[in-house]
Amino acid sequence: PGDWVLAVGEPFGLGRSVSAGVVGATDRHFVEDEEIVFIQSDVSVNPGVSGGPLLDGWGNVVGMNVRMIVSQAGTAGLSLSLPVELVLRTARHASEQAPPARLRLGADFTDPSPIDSFASRRSDTRGVLILSVHADGVAQALGLRSGDVLVSFNGRAVSGSGDLVRQLLAWQRPGGTRATVIRAGRKVHLQVPDDARAPLPQAVGPGDAPGSEVKP
């Protein structure tokens, strides 16, 4: 955040145009965009610029411009770009005859607010708040519940929703997946069996999810 970036394109058909802006965040996540992160900046991404490159101050391509966030009054605000590593990964898989299926966590999540952290008896806002859990997914097999705050995934600390998305992009197999959550003020360790394969088994019920509770 704070670095200058350039967007190259043809806004409204005006060729060879460049606009400049400043990066506000490098791992912006929205619930409705599932497991995707964006580079947030204030560079202008008008029609004709989306799909074009986002460059850093040295001319390196760091992302692909996607869209702008416009206020209800119609004024342009923030722009979103896909990180270049995600674009290259997608292009590489698209060129393969049998692209590998991408694992999905099977849960909606967001960054916890200070109020959420207070409700879970925590003093900071690190981690990810689980909003809902989809049926027959890894999250359900793990035993994640709505209201859990996910603080560790496969042994790595989770600082926020963008950090979790990047970890999920490198995730290879559901079997053995581990997670640590804060639930009702307690730290709960969850794990999917090592031999689990997709499709994963359903949990017995909302109150019978696997996991061992450890007092903080």
Rank of each mutant, 00 (worst) to 15 (best):
P1L: 13
G2S: 08
L6P: 05
G9A: 08
G9L: 00
E10M: 10
E10R: 11
G13S: 09
L14T: 04
L14K: 00
G15P: 07
G15K: 07
R16S: 12
S19V: 01
A20R: 06
G24L: 05
A25Y: 02
D27N: 11
F30D: 07
F30A: 13
E32A: 05
E32H: 00
D33Y: 15
I36H: 12
I36V: 11
F38C: 07
I39R: 01
Q40C: 10
S44N: 03
S44V: 04
V45M: 07
N46W: 03
N46E: 02
P47T: 11
P47L: 11
P47M: 14
G48T: 06
V49I: 08
G52D: 09
P53K: 01
P53T: 05
D56I: 02
G57Y: 13
G57H: 09
G59E: 06
N60T: 12
N60M: 08
V62T: 13
V62P: 06
G63H: 13
M64Q: 13
M64N: 06
N65R: 08
M68C: 00
M68E: 07
Q72L: 15
G74W: 15
G74Y: 15
T75A: 13
A76S: 15
G77A: 00
L78S: 12
S79F: 01
L80E: 05
L80Y: 08
S81H: 03
P83Y: 00
V84A: 01
V87Q: 07
H93M: 14
A101Y: 09
A101I: 12
R102E: 15
L103P: 13
R104H: 09
R104Y: 10
R104K: 10
L105E: 01
L105H: 00
G106A: 06
A107L: 13
T110R: 13
P112D: 14
S113P: 04
S113E: 15
P114S: 11
P114Q: 09
I115D: 15
S117P: 04
A119Y: 07
S120T: 11
S120Y: 01
R121G: 07
R121L: 09
R122A: 05
R122D: 00
S123A: 12
D124Y: 00
D124M: 00
R126D: 15
G127S: 04
V128R: 14
L129A: 07
L131S: 02
S132D: 11
V138F: 08
Q140H: 14
L142W: 05
G143R: 03
G143H: 11
R145A: 15
S146R: 05
S146N: 11
D148G: 12
D148P: 13
V149R: 09
R156P: 00
A157I: 14
S159W: 06
D163T: 08
L164K: 07
L164D: 05
L164W: 02
L169D: 11
A170Q: 03
W171Y: 06
W171G: 06
W171E: 02
R173N: 12
T177W: 09
T177D: 05
T177Y: 11
T180I: 08
I182W: 02
I182E: 10
A184T: 08
G185M: 05
V188C: 03
V188L: 14
L190P: 02
P193A: 08
D194L: 08
D195Q: 03
A196F: 00
A198K: 01
L200I: 06
P201T: 06
Q202H: 06
V204Y: 13
P206M: 09
P206I: 04
G207R: 06
S212T: 15
V214R: 15
